[in-house]
Amino acid sequence: SSRTRFTDYQLRVLQDFFDTNAYPKDDEIEQLSTVLNLPTRVIVVWFQNARQKARK
């Protein structure tokens, strides 16, 4: 499976959201998916990875 290449804009939006809320609800994931034009699955994985990094 090929890795998703995020744009600077997508990363900024995801990071800004994460800084406020590391555990987005389903409807928030749907909204991010629509706004960023990314599959919900990709967003879910991004947040999982971001939470892992934040824990270190």
Score class of each variant (00 low, 15 high):
21 N>Q: 02
28 E>H: 07
19 D>K: 10
22 A>C: 13
16 D>I: 02
20 T>P: 02
29 I>L: 11
20 T>E: 06
52 Q>A: 03
48 Q>I: 05
49 N>D: 14
5 R>Y: 15
49 N>S: 12
47 F>E: 00
47 F>C: 03
37 N>L: 08
30 E>P: 03
11 L>T: 10
28 E>N: 05
15 Q>C: 05
20 T>V: 07
28 E>P: 00
20 T>D: 06
44 V>K: 06
21 N>M: 03
20 T>Q: 07
23 Y>L: 12
6 F>T: 05
10 Q>L: 01
28 E>W: 02
20 T>H: 07
6 F>A: 02
10 Q>N: 05
30 E>S: 10
48 Q>D: 11
43 I>H: 00
26 D>G: 12
45 V>T: 14
36 L>G: 04
9 Y>D: 08
43 I>G: 00
53 K>H: 14
21 N>I: 07
1 S>N: 07
23 Y>P: 04
42 V>I: 13
47 F>T: 00
51 R>L: 05
4 T>A: 01
9 Y>S: 14
26 D>Q: 11
49 N>M: 07
44 V>T: 09
35 V>Y: 02
19 D>M: 10
34 T>P: 04
25 K>Y: 01
28 E>M: 02
51 R>G: 04
24 P>L: 03
53 K>S: 10
35 V>C: 13
27 D>M: 12
18 F>P: 00
34 T>I: 05
16 D>L: 02
55 R>G: 11
4 T>W: 03
42 V>K: 06
17 F>T: 09
39 P>Q: 09
9 Y>A: 15
6 F>N: 03
6 F>C: 09
19 D>P: 03
29 I>P: 00
21 N>R: 07
12 R>A: 05
2 S>K: 13
53 K>Y: 06
53 K>L: 14
29 I>Y: 12
55 R>W: 05
3 R>D: 15
27 D>S: 12
54 A>Q: 12
9 Y>K: 15
43 I>P: 00
34 T>W: 06
27 D>V: 03
47 F>I: 13
9 Y>N: 13
29 I>T: 05
37 N>I: 07
20 T>S: 11
42 V>D: 14
46 W>S: 03
17 F>L: 09
47 F>K: 01
37 N>K: 13
11 L>D: 14
38 L>P: 00
41 R>N: 14
24 P>K: 01
45 V>P: 06
38 L>T: 12
44 V>G: 10
41 R>C: 12
32 L>N: 01
23 Y>D: 15
44 V>L: 13
25 K>E: 03
18 F>M: 09
28 E>F: 03
17 F>S: 09
43 I>C: 07
28 E>D: 13
55 R>T: 12
28 E>A: 11
44 V>I: 13
41 R>Q: 12
26 D>Y: 06
7 T>D: 10
25 K>N: 08
36 L>V: 13
32 L>Y: 09
19 D>Y: 07
32 L>E: 01
33 S>P: 01
41 R>L: 10
